[in-house]
Amino acid sequence: MEETKQDIKKPENLVYKKTDLMTDKTLSYCPGCGHGVIHRMAMEVIEEMGLEEETIGIAPVGCSVLAYEFMNVDMQQAAHGRAPALATGIKRVFPEKTVFTYQGDGDLAAIGTAETIHACNRGENITIIFVNNGIYGMTGGQMAPTTLEGMKSSTTPYGRDTKKMGHPLKMTELVATLPGTCYVTRQAVHKAAAVRKTKKAIKKAIEYQKAEKGTSFIEVVSNCSSGWKMTPVQANKWMEENMFPFYPLGDIKKPEK
């Protein structure tokens, strides 16, 4: 007999369930965008570690400005770039809580550079999730600090000229040099194996936060099919061929045992 939808929904057939820490609200992200998966990985980790009652997340300004609509934990929405300052303000008065920021590349690596570097330098016991898609997605695809050399955007229509626009900024390598950071890694979510690795990295980061090791910093290299003007499949391929060579994946810094 053919399996019906009802059969599939039976508990014994359940192989995967959306975490309760993601709301049922339809994601505002474009098809193929990495944000949804990264949100889910963060929330799965919080749920699996049983931290939902003590977690406070900070949403940025950018495409993920509405992250608080989707992440079913206490959230604060920050001004553009200021998320690490909010996280510092909370964590210092509530050191036992789990505090994370979720930020894009414009937010973290341009307007929020000072807040990012100084939170990392003080070794705030917070976790920073940094989604780098090399472009300002929400405002319509303008150049980001992470836009690759030669890469086209709506404000670099002929490609990023590094003589005029400076060079793409490797914030992750930069914060890894600071004594305050304990764990610095760069991951991706374009394939199932990469998604699993990202989730593991987020888990480690939260564990280090609980162990008061200092700032844990996870860059997730992601795509922007709308901003890059590609299909999701093309965008992922372009990301592998162009973003990964400049932003290589893997751990950059781990705490000493």
Binding site: A79, A85, L86, T88, G89, I90, E115, H118
Partner: peptide
């Protein structure tokens, strides 16, 4: 001691929000 007044007011936002 924050890195700037911009940071200190946003630290206030975080703590006040909590």
């Amino acid at each position: 001691q924050a890195e700037s007044e911009v940071a200190s007011i946003n630290m206030i936002y975080g703590a006040a929000g909590a």
